[in-house]
């Protein structure tokens, strides 16, 4: 009689467990059979009604039933867990050729990209960045830079003048003057910025353009240092295989003055359309700071010497990215800009 009752309970539990689909079902089953108000607990409470002799045998059987139920529930629990793990690990059918979700970035302007590259190169050499105003006076733009009163660059055809007597700087050397006015040597600076010259826009000219100028004033600075710096820059910008040379030129604020060329980045010096078959491309104007300039700034030109250089950002961008016409840079066509989204800066 008792045996049958216990057997039925086990049978029923087996059926109940088969219906279990998740952890919650298991919890319910556990409560039903083994919890506080469970079937097994009610069996235990029957013990009290039994005689002293019957108790041990009955107790033993109920214990066995409890252990059996415990085992069955645990088994089912394991089975369910395994099902979940197997489902997680199983192969799902995706079309892996469909494109992934990705929000493409925009792009900085190539002039910004080149400016930042140039800044990084010169910062790595120990230069600091100095900036100054676009709107300047004649003193900082011409007089302090040793430009004679009657020099043609002062003409209306070359320089933009403003209605309040100022002008738009024609080079960022103005910043160099301002730094030399305020700081004693040693000075190692570059000044990137916007410059203005009254040139009609054409493939290689723009009335507004950008420059990075450099200035070094220290003890024992020679043209050899200038050559090193410019060559370091050229190789860092265009690659280690680039050759460079300097050749004599004229600027009012440097003595001696020079222009720097690099071997043509398109034909590697063999001669092509871009280098007009010369094999060389003009890259920078440079020279040793004119003693007059140093003197005007109150720097002892017997103790100190220095060099200066100026490099056009547009020119570098055109050479580096093979852009044939400067005006393309000012069209701001996003189809052009999109091509620069992968540039690292």
């Amino acid at each position: 009689m008792i045996d049958d009752q216990l057997k039925n309970i086990a049978e029923q539990a087996k059926i109940d467990l088969q219906e279990c689909r998740n952890q919650n079902d298991i919890l319910n089953i556990r409560a039903k059979y083994l919890g506080k108000k469970s079937i097994v607990n009610s069996l235990y409470s029957q013990l009290r009604n039994l005689s002293e002799e019957e108790r041990p045998a009955f107790g033993k059987k109920v214990n066995e039933l409890r252990n059996e139920l415990e085992r069955m529930i645990e088994e089912k629990e394991e089975e369910l867990k395994l099902q979940i793990v197997n489902a997680y690990d199983s192969v799902q059918v995706y079309d892996l050729t469909l494109p992934g979700v990705y929000f493409p970035p925009g792009s900085l302007h190539p002039l910004t990209i080149i400016r930042r590259k140039m800044e990084d190169i010169f910062i790595s050499l120990g230069f600091q960045i100095a900036e100054g105003p676009d709107i300047e006076d004649e003193y900082h733009n011409f007089d302090a830079l040793n430009t004679p009163e009657d020099h043609p660059s002062r003409n209306l055809a070359d320089t933009f003048y403003l209605d309040n007597g100022y002008l738009l700087r024609t080079q960022t050397s103005t910043v160099q003057v301002r730094i030399m006015e305020s700081y004693p040597p040693p000075i190692y600076i570059i000044s990137p910025g916007r410059c203005y010259r009254n040139d009609k826009p054409d493939p290689s000219h723009s009335p507004v353009f950008h420059q990075v100028e450099g200035l070094v004033v220290d003890k024992g600075i020679s043209m050899a240092d200038l050559k090193d710096t410019l060559q370091f820059f050229a190789k860092a910008m265009f690659g280690p295989e680039v050759k460079s040379r300097i050749r004599p030129h004229f600027f009012p604020f440097t003595e001696p003055s020079a222009e720097m060329d690099i071997s043509c980045v398109s034909c590697q010096g063999k001669g092509c359309r871009i280098c007009k078959n010369s094999g060389w491309l003009e890259l920078a104007g440079a020279g040793m700071v004119d003693p007059n300039v140093l003197e005007m700034m109150g720097i002892d030109d017997q103790k100190y010497s220095g060099y200066a250089f100026g490099i056009g950002i547009e020119r570098i961008a055109m050479l580096k990215y093979n852009i044939p016409d400067m005006r393309i840079l000012y069209e701001n066509d996003v189809r052009m800009l999109r091509q620069f989204r992968r540039e690292i800066i």
């Binding site: 929000f103 493409p104 970035p105 925009g106 792009s107 900085l108 302007h109 002039l111 910004t112 676009d134 738009l168 916007r194 203005y196 723009s206 009335p207 507004v208 840079l329 000012y330 701001n332 996003v334 800009l337 999109r338 989204r341």
Partner: peptide
């Protein structure tokens, strides 16, 4: 920040 947010940078003359 603007580049990463999908913007294209314009550079226009100062005039």
């Amino acid at each position: 920040y603007f580049r990463q947010s999908g913007f294209y940078e314009m550079i226009n003359p100062s005039f």
